[in-house]
Simulated scan of single mutants.
Amino acid sequence: MAGFLGIDHALIVVRDIDLVRDRYATLGFTMTPVGRHPWGTSTSLAMFDQCLLEIMSIYDESLLDEKPVGDFRFGRTIYKHLREREGISLLALHSEDAAGDVEIVQRRGIVSQGTIAFGRDVVLPDGRPDRTATTLKILYDPALPRLSNFICQQHRPELIYVPQWLSHPNGANGISRVTILARPEHQEKVRTRLSGLYGAEAIFDHPGGFGARTGNGVFVVADRAAVEKIYGALPVSLRDAAEPCCIAIHVTVSSVARVIPFLDAAEAEYRRDGNEISLVDAEAYGNVFLAFSERP
């Protein structure tokens, strides 16, 4: 079970959801059918136990301002980020008690704009239609727009964590890390943000920056030199990123050897360091470096 505000999922915003969804499927992920949110965004998921990968795009610009929370518009925010470039927009934090968890982070200085309650139509693997029920607590920070979060509580998890969707041919079973690219002069405000979410005791040292432990996985904050040493050259659209942003997701797998045939079949260039593999071409997967590490 995920602990306090574990990494739930990053919203990988892309212009062509069908194309990128197919690319993730080629890597051995079981992708859900494309669904729709009430604020105009489309979505396809790779589900793990209490966390996931989400690919998102826009299907109806006329809905972007639906379900506003104060000055925050979910669809409008995704649209704005996608107009700038593909990549991770917002990041969801897992919760079993959204109301209680938001009170904790507010006491640490994190601002919440309020609540969005919504449902999304789904078609289960056996063909039955149903509708999810989700509560979001928005934690948007105008000073860190691409590191803003929302607390996410699923009230009908049986419609999200469906056994058939949890089984991936490549053996994927979770998320262990999200890497944040931040220039040295911006790292202090990122530290303040992560300390507000998780407490100062969650912060640890890391080359090129620092990290923060969550209830599921870690955030690692690093400058460009440290990021490129791990993953290779940044995509052109990220090299001059003005603000800190998430640029890599580490997926756990039962065995690295199980992943390699999919990477070879997809002709995906990768680096291998022991029991960890990272893909070199971030641009092909929504401006995200995907990495795989073993967790049986």
Results as ranks from 00 to 15, higher is better:
V220A: 05
T252S: 10
A202V: 11
H168A: 11
H168S: 07
G171K: 04
Q187E: 11
R272H: 12
Q187P: 11
L166T: 11
P142T: 03
C152G: 14
D223L: 10
Q153E: 15
G171M: 05
H206I: 01
G208D: 01
L159Q: 04
G211L: 02
T192A: 15
R213F: 10
I175N: 07
H186R: 14
A242R: 09
G232Y: 00
P142S: 05
A266E: 04
V190T: 13
L194Q: 06
L234Y: 06
N170D: 05
S176W: 09
A241T: 05
N170L: 15
K229L: 05
A225M: 13
V162M: 06
P163E: 06
N149V: 13
L234G: 03
A257P: 13
Q153D: 09
I260M: 07
G208H: 02
R193D: 11
Q154R: 15
V221S: 01
C246E: 03
L197E: 08
F219R: 01
N170M: 15
L136P: 13
A200K: 15
S148P: 04
F262V: 08
G217S: 05
T252C: 05
A212K: 01
F210I: 03
A242T: 07
A143L: 10
V227L: 00
V190H: 14
H206L: 08
K137P: 08
P235H: 12
D205V: 10
A265V: 00
S254A: 07
C152I: 09
N149D: 06
R156D: 06
E243C: 08
P145N: 03
H250W: 15
A182R: 04
A212I: 07
E228D: 08
A248E: 07
A225Q: 15
G215H: 05
T179I: 08
V220F: 02
A143D: 13
P142W: 02
A143C: 06
Y161P: 02
A266W: 00
A233S: 12
K189A: 13
I160V: 14
L181P: 07
V253N: 09
Q164W: 06
D141W: 01
A200M: 09
A257E: 15
L263P: 12
P142E: 10
V218L: 11
F219T: 01
S167N: 15
R239V: 05
L197A: 12
G208Y: 01
S255G: 09
N170G: 04
R193Q: 14
P142Q: 00
V259N: 01
C152D: 12
F210D: 01
S237P: 11
C152F: 11
G199S: 14
K229W: 00
R191H: 13
V221T: 01
G199K: 13
S237V: 13
A268N: 09
L194F: 14
T214C: 10
L147G: 04
Y198I: 13
T179G: 00
R213L: 15
S148N: 06
C245K: 12
R258F: 03
F150K: 12
E267Y: 12
S237N: 11
R272E: 15
R191N: 09
